[in-house]
Simulated assay, not measured.
Amino acid sequence: MKMRMLTYSPLDSPLHRLSGAAKLIFFILWAVTVMVTFDTRSLLVMLLFALILLRVSRIKLRDYAFVLYLILIFFALNHLAIFLFSPLEGVSLYGTRHDLFPIAGRYIVTEEQLFYQFNVALKYVTVIPMALLFMLTTEPGEFAASLHRVGISYRIAYAVSIALRYIPDVQRDYENIACAAQARGIDISRKEKLTRRVRNMIGILLPLILTSVQRIETISAAMELRSFGQHRKRTWYNGRPFTWMDYFVIILIILIAAVSTYVTFQDGSRFYNPFQ
């Protein structure tokens, strides 16, 4: 099975038909709302909404599985680091202490710490689906246009667009180089020992890096010959005007952010505390 990276999936769904600028505004407000709140009730409702949108988008798991696995690895490392460096953070936040069982020294598992880390995990899994949806339902050219529309320099926006377009090329080059290496007897499968697999993969990455550098030089020369960056403004071929659905989505996320903020701070704290 081929490894699939985080690339645009050209499907026909309500999310794909939204303009890139509307989706960018939605994602920014969504991410800010999730970062602000530690209210478990708000996060659970937002997570359910995100999962529904992921279902509506018709995107398959294989389209983002590789990136999701990487995220889960860093997710687990982050939670381990939280407990190692601050095992009683939940106790200090919620003002109570209910011990479950000791581990060693100051490392004691408490209900407050588990609830705090559950909320941290909930914040991650609430943002990740929206980030994946934004990347997978927005064509790179339209993504660049949306960045420029919200005030980012078109030079930066175009660089982001090229980077996103380049992901499938890197993936294809890696697969071609890996197939050529395997044809010469270089094994990178699980049948080989881990140390030898790492050495063999390094042998594949080196020509991949050289190929990438060569392509970057070609693109840079082509853009320089066309006087890219000479003017302060530019138009976008893939830019789309707002429709009623775009305005509806923006109003919806504003309402979600407002309701979540009210529920979060109605008791004077952004931490939902079930222990009091």
Rank of each mutant, 00 (worst) to 15 (best):
residue 5 M to L: 08
residue 7 T to P: 00
residue 8 Y to G: 02
residue 9 S to K: 10
residue 10 P to T: 01
residue 14 P to M: 07
residue 18 L to N: 00
residue 20 G to W: 05
residue 20 G to D: 06
residue 27 F to P: 01
residue 33 T to D: 05
residue 34 V to N: 07
residue 40 T to M: 04
residue 45 V to T: 06
residue 47 L to H: 03
residue 48 L to T: 13
residue 48 L to C: 01
residue 54 L to V: 04
residue 68 L to D: 01
residue 69 Y to W: 09
residue 70 L to D: 01
residue 73 I to L: 15
residue 74 F to M: 10
residue 75 F to L: 08
residue 75 F to S: 08
residue 77 L to A: 12
residue 79 H to Y: 14
residue 79 H to G: 15
residue 82 I to L: 15
residue 83 F to L: 10
residue 86 S to D: 15
residue 86 S to Y: 15
residue 87 P to M: 14
residue 88 L to V: 09
residue 88 L to E: 12
residue 91 V to G: 01
residue 95 G to R: 10
residue 109 V to S: 05
residue 109 V to W: 10
residue 113 Q to D: 03
residue 115 F to R: 02
residue 120 V to C: 11
residue 121 A to K: 06
residue 124 Y to T: 07
residue 124 Y to M: 06
residue 127 V to K: 03
residue 129 P to G: 03
residue 135 M to L: 14
residue 137 T to D: 07
residue 138 T to G: 09
residue 145 A to Y: 04
residue 147 L to N: 04
residue 147 L to P: 02
residue 147 L to Q: 06
residue 148 H to Q: 05
residue 150 V to P: 08
residue 151 G to K: 15
residue 152 I to K: 04
residue 153 S to P: 04
residue 154 Y to K: 03
residue 158 Y to W: 13
residue 159 A to Q: 01
residue 161 S to Y: 08
residue 165 R to L: 15
residue 165 R to P: 08
residue 165 R to W: 13
residue 172 R to W: 06
residue 174 Y to N: 07
residue 179 C to Y: 04
residue 191 K to N: 07
residue 193 K to W: 07
residue 198 V to E: 12
residue 199 R to H: 13
residue 199 R to V: 10
residue 200 N to I: 02
residue 203 G to Q: 11
residue 203 G to M: 03
residue 204 I to Q: 15
residue 204 I to C: 02
residue 204 I to A: 09
residue 205 L to I: 12
residue 205 L to A: 14
residue 214 Q to C: 05
residue 217 E to K: 13
residue 218 T to N: 12
residue 224 E to S: 14
residue 227 S to E: 10
residue 228 F to R: 03
residue 230 Q to Y: 13
residue 234 R to A: 07
residue 234 R to G: 06
residue 237 Y to G: 01
residue 237 Y to L: 12
residue 241 P to F: 08
residue 242 F to T: 07
residue 246 D to K: 03
residue 246 D to V: 06
residue 248 F to G: 11
residue 251 I to P: 04
residue 253 I to F: 05
residue 254 I to Y: 14
residue 254 I to S: 05
residue 256 I to K: 01
residue 257 A to Y: 06
residue 258 A to F: 11
residue 259 V to M: 10
residue 261 T to Y: 06
residue 267 D to Y: 06
residue 268 G to M: 00
residue 269 S to D: 09
residue 271 F to Q: 02
residue 275 F to N: 08
